[in-house]
Simulated scan of single mutants.
Amino acid sequence: MRAGRSWRLATGLAAVVVAVVVAVLIVGGRSEDRADPEGGDVPTTPRSLAFVVSEHVDLEPTRAGVDWAADNYRRLFPHPKRAVAASTNFAGDGNIVVVGVSPEREKVGPSCDDGFCADLGDGVRLAWDELAPEEDPGLVVVVAELDTHTVVLRYSGPAITGDPRDLDLPIPVDTMVDIVTDPRVAPTTSQEAVDSGEEIDFWLDGNPVV
């Protein structure tokens, strides 16, 4: 990882291949109200995060859970116990995402000293590390600092050879932005998201996702 990414290095995520989130309840289907989701006042769970993320990603989730990688993402925030995180692999081992949600801001925000970042507007920032041949495929991070909470999403697996907005990624940047700005990806969510999260069938309790 580059020195400019101290906000991730401090959490030990630089050496982690991580993953986020998870599952489709209706086989072959997506929620019809995905385009206009509504949040709620029910406490968010890792499983509910997994359900919501799976609605956005047009790949098959293979396994999901709360592992040491997701726990590291909770530690991005001043009080980790107030944060919720989940991790998952999509379409085998090649598309790995992790999402953390907290009512607090990150301990250290991303540095743009090396130019590998962009302000997408409305409190959303994009940052990335590029491919290091034979060492690291690179990664993409999207951060949303919203009125009531912060969401941090990390995507790794595919080779990042430039600005991820210009790459044909299996999980596009637009999809990542949709995830971090979904009102159900927050400290509280809808009862439907929580109930649906409880029904996902490949959540790995007590087992590592990676």
Rank of each mutant, 00 (worst) to 15 (best):
R2Y: 13
A3H: 12
G4C: 07
R5F: 13
R5S: 15
A10D: 14
G12Q: 03
A15T: 12
V16P: 00
V21Y: 02
V22R: 06
A23H: 03
V24L: 05
L25H: 11
V27S: 08
G29K: 11
G29R: 10
R30H: 13
D33T: 01
D33P: 00
D33W: 02
R34Q: 09
A35R: 15
D36C: 04
P37M: 09
P37T: 11
P37Q: 12
G39I: 04
G40N: 13
V42I: 13
V42N: 09
P46N: 06
R47W: 01
R47C: 04
S48A: 14
S48K: 05
S48Q: 01
L49Y: 14
L49I: 13
F51D: 13
F51R: 11
F51I: 03
V52I: 15
E55H: 02
H56G: 06
V57G: 10
D58P: 07
E60W: 02
E60R: 10
P61D: 09
P61I: 02
V66E: 09
D67M: 03
A70S: 10
A70R: 00
D71S: 07
Y73K: 00
R74V: 01
R75H: 10
L76T: 00
F77N: 01
P80V: 05
K81G: 07
A83Y: 02
A86Q: 10
A86V: 13
A86F: 03
S87N: 14
S87K: 01
N89V: 05
F90D: 11
F90S: 12
A91F: 03
G92E: 10
D93V: 12
N95M: 06
I96Y: 05
V97P: 01
G100I: 01
G100R: 02
S102M: 04
S102R: 08
R105F: 04
R105E: 08
K107Y: 09
V108D: 13
G109F: 07
P110N: 06
S111M: 06
D113S: 13
G115H: 10
A118P: 01
G121V: 08
V124F: 08
V124H: 11
R125A: 13
R125Q: 15
R125N: 09
D129W: 03
D129G: 12
L131S: 08
E134T: 06
P137T: 06
V140L: 14
V141E: 14
V141A: 11
V143G: 09
T148C: 04
H149W: 03
H149C: 07
V152Y: 08
R154M: 15
R154H: 09
G157I: 01
I160D: 08
T161N: 13
G162I: 03
D163L: 07
P164V: 00
R165P: 03
D168T: 08
P170W: 12
I171Q: 03
P172W: 09
T175C: 11
T175N: 08
M176H: 08
V177G: 09
D178W: 02
T181W: 01
D182A: 06
P183V: 05
V185L: 10
A186N: 07
A186R: 06
P187N: 06
T188K: 15
T188H: 06
S190Q: 05
E199D: 11
E199S: 15
E199N: 14
L204D: 01
L204K: 06
V209L: 11
V210W: 15
